[in-house]
Design a protein around this nucleic acid. Structure first.
Lengths: 219, 219, 219, 219
DNA sequence: AATGAATGAGTATTCATTCAT
DNA sequence: CATGAATGAATACTCATTCAT
């Protein structure tokens, strides 16, 4: 929980307009921990208050409803997920100024970057994965963010490397699906399904990258 | 809900020893539907009773607790997932009597088979995926079933085709992860994440199979 | 439970008009046991059914309500308590034909007789003591039985021995209270409050009798 | 209910550390009244809430469970019963400094004192008598308190007066039983069994005291 | 800003009782 | 006579939320 960059971001975010109090920080931390352990619906606000060391009423001073609390955790995370894809440098690096010469390098950058991101934000990602299924507002938010950013940029990149003959000819969305599936599949296995296994991260990431590259290679 | 083979199995299962009443069937159907829509914790027994058209007390005549009801839905499904992997024919087909000549045919059989299975049992699978994170008994059940059956058989097959030079040399569990990740990734995208998209199932399955094969090929 | 004469009486009682079935006997036995352990209100009919080895509905075939079941246990017992006081021989023995020569012998007979009665019917007496406080019909039944029989006869006896100068002059009801209090106090201590203590019954009864006699003696 | 000293004590007790709210007092009063009328098991928390004029949830804010509420009523009473027997003055008065010259005076003090105590706390005593049979924790609490205090001190006193020749030679526990039985028997008859009878309390107490004294006298 | 007492609607579960078989 | 599925009201208890302090 020490290296949880997102919580820090969360705090800073709100900090700018309204100065988060110490208690509010405690509430957020407690909520993240319990939501990720037992799920949103099975978590009571009184339990959050107890763990945060605040009175029950204090939660509602900062968050109008329990759902508000959930969204205040999850929405910034949703934004963060897009992070590297919005960064101007990202696309430039990839296709724009030709600094990035191969699809392989692209895949490797994404993998490394998302690996670090997931590693640092496991509990919030757990919450996000669980709750997105039940909250339509969340689903829409996510879809909009995904389509407008990740998908768009990815498509651009994929088409670029298809044109260069590095990636097989087939609908870019299928390529994106297979790449995403392989990377996400690895990250979930690594951090959620079998986190206690002894992992050689470098080796396993490399293997997964090679799998993707071979799977999509034109040769 | 018409072609939901698992529910029928569920009913038959209990039918053999204790004759499921009409109301009990209604309860199961209602529970599956609501659990999959809103999640176990967010579903109230009164809502299940209302949708099933029975008195609330009737639920508890058949299922001692709400959790019992959940498990009576999920446990048989857990078993069903292993289905094709326990079948004696499966391994024989694959490696035993040499009826199955290639890794490709193996992947294709698994893909087709699981595709049909998921297609017919979407709601229950949704429930399973959601709840496995929160119920340790379920996690253990699943892990035991997975390790004793799927993993074991898969490993056998993978090693067989590695020996034949059809599959790259690397730890079988990594191969299994990448195969599973690609198949499951496709199925979840197809049925849970973007079910409303126009899918050409044959084409997409074939693409995924080719992705896996190329990704793992020695050539 | 073997020497529980009252249950046998209960069975015979009903036997005369309507033939008690084996199941009905089981229900009565189970009800007595559980009522006396947990109290009437805290006992569920389903628990009685389970312990009796019958279906839940069967209880209500024989007893219209749970309260009916309670009364069918307690009412005959109420009658039994009066037993020795109604017996014609009792008063005759005492004062009528002068067979009984002293107050001492009277107290001794009552003590011995009630000792045996309580000993054989502990569970039912426990139920009676507990429930009489909460059921007005029971209280009335008991009061009527007590006033019409025990009190009346006792008063007769007490006045007889007061006239003979064996018992101090004071309102007979006060004498009855002190006698009853001493006998009942002994029996409850013996069988309910400290049943596990090592008792020398003969000695203790004799002591109690002597206490009463000295306490009421004119000398 | 006006002169109910124990309730006031109950309130003060909690008052010291945690300030009882007005509603909490109402809940206690309602609970005592209904528990004593219908018994603990037959009393519903909703009925208590209704009579106390509070929401049902309010009960559980102050008492974790219904049983907690019962114990918060009964436990301080248990302590109170021992009251006069713990008081240092009691034994000193009796045997220590010889201020108390006779067994008669001892019995008279106990009788008067317990008379007042019972008179002021009828409902709680009713609850105690009823529920002690069903709650083992209560039974143990009571037995411990009784053995460590009342019985010990009483034994001391009895042996003292046996040595002085005022009380017959027999096991002190038998003497205690007969004294207790006579006093408690009187108090229960007076306040619980026949409270509506016209009682001449002074006379009846005196009679009972004389009965005990004569019953135990060496002469 | 923070508290925590109070709430009323809601929770899972149990209950005594009914009735078709 | 006996069953046990079915019920609807009741049960103890929890919940998210409000509000006076």
């Amino acid at each position: 929980m020490s290296d949880m960059e997102l919580i820090e971001e969360l705090i800073k975010l709100n900090d700018e307009d309204s100065k988060m109090t110490e208690k509010q920080v405690k509430i957020l931390q407690a909520a993240i921990e319990i939501f990720s352990e037992k799920g949103y619906a099975a978590t009571s606000t009184s339990e959050i208050a107890r763990k945060a060391g605040v009175a029950e009423g204090t939660i509602f001073r900062h968050y109008k409803t329990k759902k508000d609390l959930l969204f205040s955790i999850v929405t910034p995370t949703l934004a963060k997920i897009v992070g590297p894809f919005i960064a101007r440098t990202f696309v430039n690096q990839t296709v724009g100024k030709n600094k990035l010469e191969s699809f392989e390098e692209f895949i490797r950058i994404v993998m490394k970057n998302r690996f670090e991101f997931v590693k640092k934000n496991i509990p919030i990602i757990k919450i996000l994965l669980q709750e997105i299924a039940f909250h339509d507002e969340m689903k829409e938010q996510y879809q909009q963010i995904f389509m407008d950013n990740i998908y768009k940029k990815m498509k651009h990149v994929v088409e670029h490397f298809q044109a260069k003959g590095e990636v097989i000819e087939c609908p870019p969305e299928a390529v994106i699906r297979m790449v995403a599936t392989s990377i996400i599949g690895f990250l979930l296995t690594r951090f959620l399904i079998l986190p206690e296994k002894q992992w050689n991260d470098e080796e396993e990431m490399e293997r997964t990258i090679q799998f993707i590259l071979h799977g999509l290679s034109t040769k």
